[in-house]
Design a binder for these strands. Structure first.
Length: 721
DNA sequence: GAGTTTGAAACT
DNA sequence: CAGTTTCAAACTC
């Protein structure tokens, strides 16, 4: 799996950071650096931003789609240019509006000018091709199809396809965002099945017609390694962290053939591990990836969200494996997973041991497929303090099972006498087997604390999709939490509790009632933590004995939308008129229903008091929004001012307007350079001469920019702006 | 921040 | 199941 490295991210312009989809398939041993440039130093400098590094296996271009050069090449029907780069070939094409390949004629080196190198390349020993397709059409066909015959001729070779989809098919002058994806075709794969197309940052299709691609949101960690995590705990909170529960399945020696792999959205918050799924006990990582494509498996999409808001998606092939076990709770907004001890789960393709490389070369980040979408509501990173960020490229982020036994992610307490009722466990509960106890022992842990558990690079959780109502869970997982929208749940983190006498082990405690551990609370003598897991388990059991519905959401979600939301038990208010937050109905912003036993209720549709309150509340909300918007705008302006101080283009000793170097200017410059390269190519100029021409053009461009900027500055000064 | 009010949870 | 107590959040000053 390839993820844009933080280093590369830092170099990318914003539009690149806005990339929506980056796809790749693990392909160990094939990561070769490519660059859309010749090997000459001059061109390398010019094209440095386009370099595809082995570390991230990606290429990102910032170029308009309909340049004169490309259009001219398209009209001329020039075949895709193959640029030789240290033993591997790069097919540089572009998909124009017509769907025809657009040739980016770049000066190639070493070979005789004017001669297509495609034929020669096919004769090269152990050739590898990277097909770069720059496309602007929204209905782009798979890359393989677009390059058609050329790819077909290369079927017997390793083929890498880099597809660059234009995000906004606007005019050529508009900034264009490229989405670069790359897949690797196995020798045994046909192009039709192995290249998932990415259009405008989205995976259009995947091989499976039944199971849609799944999205995993990953919060991009920054600069902190896993080793710095205190306590080696990770926290996946259903309510606190901005992450979805990460569920990992492992191969089970007693796997049931009827069990399906489970596709689990993984949103890894800062410092959290990507819990991967490794089901195959025989296939190597490469085999897993290729077989998935060959067998028409769905694709796992991983969105890697950076702290700064950048997002990248990596498509992960999903394996259909029979060894995943998932515990699903009908009617519950949370899902439960069950650890299955893996004795034979392995990645035989990499017998050297655990994954120690980056995601790119890591063991397959195979998130199991299935109808169930394991998801935990996204919430603000309240628990982030406990979790140190971890770089995405860290090997530990990709958690895979190996031939070693599964490691537990938590100090599970074997309590066979406590067999939780799966349908009523606190939300977010994760069940884990006791060490050495197989599936016997369970530790009931809120999902939030999955991330606070011991960080093993081989954390694996097994889930079972064979649990009934999986489809319902899948749907429910997408529904708003507890009747609240995702935005509400994310923007309204639960308040810290202040319990003093209940030890946070009774439903008085909101944390406990929500199935969460206390975290950053103000409670005293708190037992709602891992250190008191035994007591907590007993308390949970007590609550469930008293009320099996204790941990279920009180506010149900009706079929018709918010109008049907109502309290499951109804309120019993007597003095508040159900118009204060004492009332659970009013607090949930729903009206009282017939099941309420309230006295003097004013929380009904026609209530004038209620309407007055609502109007006041709306006005207050609008005010808050306006204030927030004002703050945001101010912050943006401050940031903009800070940014403007960065560039120093000296002209007459003063600073030039930073905003003069716009994306359009950059794009135009690139156009000029490419045009010059094309010109050199067409005139069969030697490499040195081609470099000189391009460099000269670059100098001209710079001069024009400086001149224009200086003029603009002078004009601005003249009008005293 | 302290004190009061309130209603759900817990208890009898 | 009803009444009472406990509890913590909501609310007021």
């Amino acid at each position: 799996m390839d993820v844009v490295s933080p280093e590369l991210n830092s170099l990318l312009p914003d539009e690149i950071m806005d990339t929506e989809a980056i796809e790749d398939v693990p392909h160990p041993g094939s990561q070769l650096p490519i660059s859309i440039s010749s090997t000459s130093s001059g061109l390398q400098k010019l094209t440095a931003p386009f370099t595809i590094s082995a570390a991230n296996h990606q290429i990102i271009l910032n170029k308009v789609a309909s340049s004169q050069a490309t259009e001219a090449a398209k009209s001329a029907g020039t075949p895709p240019q193959v640029i030789k780069q240290e033993g591997q070939k790069l097919l540089v094409t572009a998909i124009g509006k017509s769907g025809q390949p657009i040739v980016l004629q770049l000066p190639h080196t070493g070979n005789k000018p004017g001669i297509s190198q495609t034929a020669a390349d096919t004769k090269s020993p152990a050739p590898q091709f990277k097909v770069v397709t720059i496309g602007g059409r929204s209905d782009l066909k798979p890359v393989v199809g677009s390059v058609g015959n050329q790819v077909t001729t290369l079927q017997a070779q390793q083929l890498k396809t880099v597809q660059i989809a234009k995000k906004t098919p606007a005019s050529s002058a508009a900034p264009i965002k490229f989405i670069i994806t790359k897949t690797v075709n196995s020798k045994t794969l046909s192009p039709q099945t192995s290249v998932p197309p990415v259009i405008a940052g989205r995976v259009l299709t995947q091989s499976s017609p039944v199971i849609p691609p799944r999205t995993i949101n990953l919060s991009e960690p920054h600069n902190t390694s896993i080793q710095s995590l205190p306590g080696k705990k990770i926290a996946i909170s259903p309510l606190k962290t901005p992450s979805k529960v990460t569920v990992v399945s492992v191969a089970s020696p007693t796997s049931n053939a009827s069990q399906k792999s489970v596709a689990l959205p993984v949103n890894v918050a800062l410092g959290q591990q990507i819990l991967t799924v490794q089901q195959s006990t025989s296939a190597s990582p490469v085999k897993v990836a290729t077989s998935q494509s060959a067998n028409i498996k769905p694709v796992q999409s991983v969105a890697v969200g950076g702290v700064g808001g950048s997002q990248f998606k990596t498509i992960i092939p999903l394996a259909t494996q029979p060894n995943v076990q998932q515990i699903q709770v009908p009617g519950s907004r949370f899902h439960y997973v069950r650890l299955v001890t893996a004795t034979t789960a392995s990645s035989t393709g990499q017998p050297s041991g655990p994954s120690t490389s980056s995601i790119q070369t890591a063991k397959p980040m195979v998130v199991s497929t299935g109808a169930v979408r394991m998801s935990v509501p996204i919430v603000p990173p309240q628990t982030m303090k406990q979790v140190a960020p971890k770089p995405l490229t860290s090997a530990a982020q990709v958690v895979t099972t190996t031939q070693t036994q599964q490691r537990l992610i938590m100090p599970a307490t074997p309590l066979p006498q406590i067999q939780p009722n799966f349908t009523n466990l606190p939300p977010g509960t994760v069940l884990a087997p006791a060490p050495g106890g197989g599936n016997v022992g369970y530790a009931v842990v809120p999902a939030q604390y999955v991330t606070q558990l011991q960080q093993s690079p081989f954390v694996t959780l097994a889930s079972s999709s064979s649990f009934p109502a999986s489809a319902g869970i899948q749907t429910q997982a997408r529904l708003p939490l507890n009747g609240l929208s995702a935005a509400e749940t994310t923007s309204r983190p639960r308040k810290p509790c202040n319990c003093t006498k209940s030890q946070c082990l009774k439903l008085y405690c909101d944390c406990f009632a929500n199935g969460e551990f206390c975290n950053n609370c103000n409670c005293n003598n708190c037992f709602n933590n891992l250190e008191h897991e035994t007591e907590r388990l007993k308390a949970i059991k007590t609550c469930l004995d008293r009320n099996p519905e204790a941990f279920k959401p009180k506010i149900g979600k009706g079929k018709e939308g918010e109008a049907d939301r109502r309290h499951s038990k109804g309120c019993n208010c007597k003095r508040s008129g159900c118009l204060k937050n004492y009332c659970e109905c009013y607090e949930a912003k729903i009206m009282c229903s017939s099941i309420c036993k309230c006295i003097g209720c004013k929380n009904f549709e026609e209530s004038p008091e209620r309407k007055t309150l609502m109007h006041l509340a709306d006005a207050a909300e609008v005010r808050v929004q306006q204030q927030t918007a004002a703050k945001t705008k101010l912050s943006s302006q401050i940031s903009d001012l800070l940014m403007r101080t960065t560039p120093v283009v000296s002209s007459g000793g003063g600073r030039l307007p930073y905003t003069f170097v716009t994306k359009e200017v950059l794009e135009a410059t690139c156009e000029c350079l490419l045009e010059q390269a094309k010109k050199a190519e067409q005139t069969h100029q030697p490499r040195a001469e081609a470099e000189r021409m391009i460099l000269e053009e670059f100098g001209h461009c710079l001069m024009r920019i400086i001149s224009s900027a200086g003029k603009a500055k002078a004009d601005c000064a003249s009008i005293n702006c």
